[in-house]
Design a binder for these strands. Sequence first.
DNA 1: TTAATTTACGCCAACGAATGCGTAAACTTA
DNA 2: TAAGTTTACGCATTCGTTGGCGTAAATTAA
Lengths: 384, 384
Amino acid sequence: MPVCPKCSQPDGVMKAGFVRGRQRYFCKGCAYHFTEAKPAVPERKRYQATLADVARAVGVASSTVSRALNGHADISPATRQAIQEAARQLDYHPNFLAQSLKRRETMTIGVVIPDIERPFFATAVSGIQDVATAAGYRVMICQSKESYEAEVSNVQALIANRVDGLLICHSRETENFDHVKEPARRGIPVVHFDRVCNEVNSAKVILDDRQGAFAITEHLIEQGCRRIAILAGPPSLLISRQRQAGYLGALRKHGLPTSEELCAHINFRTESAVAALDAWLALPEPPDAIFAINYTNAFDLLIALKQRGLRVPADMAIVGFGDEFMAMLIEPGLTTVDLHPFRIGQQAARLFLEQMTQKELFEPRTCIIPGELIIRQSSLKSRG
Amino acid sequence: MPVCPKCSQPDGVMKAGFVRGRQRYFCKGCAYHFTEAKPAVPERKRYQATLADVARAVGVASSTVSRALNGHADISPATRQAIQEAARQLDYHPNFLAQSLKRRETMTIGVVIPDIERPFFATAVSGIQDVATAAGYRVMICQSKESYEAEVSNVQALIANRVDGLLICHSRETENFDHVKEPARRGIPVVHFDRVCNEVNSAKVILDDRQGAFAITEHLIEQGCRRIAILAGPPSLLISRQRQAGYLGALRKHGLPTSEELCAHINFRTESAVAALDAWLALPEPPDAIFAINYTNAFDLLIALKQRGLRVPADMAIVGFGDEFMAMLIEPGLTTVDLHPFRIGQQAARLFLEQMTQKELFEPRTCIIPGELIIRQSSLKSRG
DNA sequence: TTAATTTACGCCAACGAATGCGTAAACTTA
DNA sequence: TAAGTTTACGCATTCGTTGGCGTAAATTAA
């Protein structure tokens, strides 16, 4: 038996249960319970000054320090000065955790995106941070890597972090949206952007795939193209259907025939893009322009055409979608639609802020960020 | 005078000072102080269940709920089941703020980078998240946008958020490093990556510019190039000096002469790259290869050469530095050094974790992530 | 020169979770 | 069956801030 820490005697000490893995004892003489010594906690020390530290240094109450530093009125100039000085000396930084706990808001917004490495999302995140930072909010970014489970766990982690708002672009896999209904139920504003979800009554920011595709197709028509092919994605993908719809709309508006043979549905891989190209080139009447709904495939086409000795845009005009900055670096420059991801991010953040200001009065709405046609060499037949 | 909320009478009520902008009153009869009604707080309600809510539902103490959900030993199976069930019913999520406050750790690491839109950093962040997430840490990302002030304010915000660690890549402007000494003093592990700071005794992850430049230059030499030019940056830039040193080292090792006329120092703009190229082409004996230390300039060169009717690599080999994925998309594919930003991020996060585990025993060290030569068409003279 | 006010603080109870300590009741053991 | 043990919990405090409420002292008004 160990000695009793009160009387320093082993007499009368007996076992008294197990508490969380540690043997407990009871000293009959002192009527005192105690446990074995802890397995020695090295205890990393954090020298973070607290309000109480500042208060002690100045000789006031911590509430006075709080009020002084937060600019409340009823603090004498002398005290305020002394407190500010001491805070600087001690290098006091308010603990956001404690503040947030007390104020019941974290001034943090959570962002869930599929993949930060994709330029579109990186730029959108930048747009979000631009607006959020200006409004005093911090941003916590999570990547789903296009996995439904990762997305759900991201959302839950953000809820547990008590973010003040949630901006989300769903993963491709996501079909069940219960995880975004929860924050909404809890009164946490949710804003969808890019890939939205109509099951949830949230504010949304989307880009207008259809209008963009329409505009770029019309541009090709204006350049004199008459047999315009489209390199689309799997029909199951919404953006693919939308962009195709814009393309078809432009053809119809200008009285051009639409044909099945000029619509290819590929999986976005280089090989399938090249295969589609070769099929088109083998036609008795090949297309004079190709609209690739994915910019990487547009690059694939440019390279493949060059290898086949065809000139762009003279023999074949090429346009892409999504103005990542390499569209400008490549030769010839690629005509695309700039989707303005930065603006999309900004708008999503603004919708969140609006919701915070208007509270219950806020009526969720959908903002459409129009794409912008960026004309470069790859489509300029008239001048090419 | 307003009525006293106790006796509902206006008699005996008198003013009693101003508290934080609101008039206060004192009812003599009731000896009761009160203030004007608040300006009606709409109070956004958050329906976040707490331990106490769960405890109430089950009819136990909140401490029991805490222990049950955290898997402590001394909870009866029946109680634990009931608690888990109730927690699920109420959709309880522990409040990380409260947890962090109590546990004095946030399980969050702060990352400061110049710009998330640059592929190198986006990928590095991904690497950090990869390791951090696996270890149960969350990541808070801040961008300095290459501004010293923004960087300082980011670091302070992260300290205020009580992050458990700080991974930082300095802005170009940063010359004073006091802001990173602070967290170190406070016991917050700091890891530098890419752009490090030697004034602080922190763990560091760097890439080996010199070795990479050496390798890629040597590769050109092996391809039969004998007059290799370098498109460097301003001599004030460390990476520029390092890469140039590697380049010079390779030339010397292979007994090739070095010449001033083959070294251009530019500001990374397209125009200055093209100007340097034209100057070289005008030489009596133009170079047969160019090493652009910045990959965007390598693209500029490829385009300019094409416009001037020169073939790559037959007439001129081109190599870049930094394997952003467009290096592969362009035609001809660009030979580069892959700097492995993902690995850099991973390693930075690992160094942080190591420091958390070893505490005071941790000895800061510097890890060098070697670059990897990626050979593509733009330099393949022997096969070209 | 009292009485009414105001100033400038202090005290203390939250916020939500974790945890040391205490203990009634159940269970063993001698 | 009485004493020793263990089980399964409850109580109360703590983390750092905030803010309602109270009040001695200073100031002003009557």
